[in-house]
Amino acid sequence: MKRSRSARTALPIGLSLLVSATLAAPVAQAADVNIYTSRQPELIQPVLDAFTEETGLSTATIFIDKGLEERVKAEGANSPADLIMTVDIGRLDAAKQAGVVQPVESAVLAENIPEQFRDGEKEWFALTARGRVVYASKDRFDADSITYEELADPKWKGRLCTRSGQHQYNIALIAAYIAHHGEDAARQWVTGLRDNLARRPEGGDRDQAKAIFAGECDIAIGNTYYVGKMATNDKEPEQKEWANAIKVIMPTFDNGLTHVNISGVSLAKNAPNADNAVKLMEFLSSDEAQKIYAELNYEYPVEPGIETSDLVKSFGELKPDSLPLDEIAEHRTKASEIVDEVNYDGGPQS
């Protein structure tokens, strides 16, 4: 487990290895709040440090990229996990469906987080939002607006790049399309996207910006916060060139609103430190934590009234789709089936 820098005590080296390897019951008290997360720990460490400074409660994180809910389920009552933090509505819903989280009654969370950004049964709560937008070449894309529906227009044939259609971010977008237009229309749309591809889907969202910079395609689909990460990347300055080659277009559905996905948090079903964990959940929804997320991670705060960073403001106004996220989650399986049915990841076929 990665300990918060401001934690009050340090685990002995041998015990740290045991925690990482087995997470057995005897180490359930490794910290005041133990977090299983699919988010890179460095992205959340600043807010965890702020929590420790304010409350005196220590935190420990373990990064689990895949199989998070399966691991918690396998550990059962002996799991040391207090909180599950992840990205994408699909992964939050997967944890809920796996039965490894529990509802939280909190007036603070209800006040800070709008209804559309929390589970109707109070088993997950969004912390930040990110728009699923269009990256467009500054040199080769003249328009300032586009709809999601228009991305399948044949006029973009050979000009679109995306990561795998089966990636959770694209599955959520397709699921939202199903919710808006139905399965048949979504199948036609994904087929149109496939035939507009410049190449087979590959890489991550940053790689799509790189492809636009290299002239391989003119438009791509990506998350907003990656643009901020690229534009400020001093360790890999070539990414600044990728960011500078593109402009962010806020695509919309026919309701004039943009699809957003989230990062979020749930209380683990067998949390050994449940009271402390709820305190952290409430802190993560607070003004202080939301401002840290906005400034350091280039994400959109879900708490109303918290401003985004200046860089994110430069993307233009994000008007989030009003479609409930748990409704989107209901269509994830069908969205994944459609991707396979049309062989989207096989690349353009007509």
Score class of each variant (00 low, 15 high):
residue 86 T to W: 14
residue 273 N to A: 14
residue 131 G to H: 03
residue 273 N to E: 12
residue 187 R to F: 11
residue 99 G to H: 11
residue 114 P to R: 07
residue 17 L to R: 06
residue 139 D to W: 02
residue 238 E to C: 07
residue 182 G to V: 03
residue 105 E to Q: 08
residue 8 R to M: 13
residue 91 R to K: 12
residue 239 Q to C: 10
residue 108 V to M: 15
residue 31 A to R: 02
residue 312 V to G: 00
residue 248 V to M: 15
residue 311 L to W: 02
residue 232 T to P: 06
residue 56 G to N: 05
residue 205 D to G: 12
residue 312 V to D: 03
residue 179 A to C: 09
residue 93 D to H: 04
residue 112 N to H: 11
residue 140 R to W: 11
residue 292 I to S: 08
residue 141 F to P: 02
residue 293 Y to K: 01
residue 113 I to T: 03
residue 32 D to A: 04
residue 349 Q to F: 08
residue 88 D to V: 02
residue 99 G to L: 13
residue 148 Y to H: 00
residue 269 K to D: 10
residue 295 E to G: 09
residue 253 F to P: 04
residue 265 V to R: 02
residue 10 A to S: 15
residue 287 D to V: 12
residue 166 Q to P: 02
residue 208 Q to G: 06
residue 291 K to S: 14
residue 320 P to D: 07
residue 68 L to P: 00
residue 113 I to G: 00
residue 164 S to I: 00
residue 156 W to Q: 01
residue 175 A to C: 09
residue 198 A to F: 08
residue 236 E to G: 12
residue 104 V to W: 05
residue 339 V to E: 11
residue 133 V to C: 12
residue 198 A to T: 03
residue 321 D to S: 09
residue 336 S to V: 13
residue 338 I to M: 02
residue 144 D to E: 05
residue 140 R to H: 15
residue 159 R to Q: 15
residue 133 V to N: 06
residue 230 M to T: 01
residue 296 L to Y: 13
residue 65 D to M: 10
residue 307 E to H: 09
residue 84 I to T: 04
residue 39 R to Y: 08
residue 210 K to G: 12
residue 82 D to R: 02
residue 148 Y to T: 00
residue 187 R to L: 14
residue 8 R to K: 14
residue 66 K to N: 14
residue 243 A to M: 05
residue 31 A to Y: 00
residue 93 D to M: 04
residue 282 E to M: 05
residue 313 K to S: 15
residue 228 G to S: 09
residue 312 V to K: 02
residue 307 E to K: 11
residue 33 V to Y: 07
residue 131 G to K: 02
residue 77 A to H: 12
residue 264 G to L: 01
residue 47 V to E: 05
residue 173 L to P: 05
residue 217 C to F: 11
residue 81 A to K: 00
residue 191 T to R: 03
residue 57 L to T: 05
residue 5 R to Y: 08
residue 327 E to T: 14
residue 90 G to Y: 06
residue 30 A to H: 04
residue 18 L to G: 14
residue 44 I to W: 12
residue 129 A to R: 02
residue 103 P to Q: 09
residue 254 D to M: 07
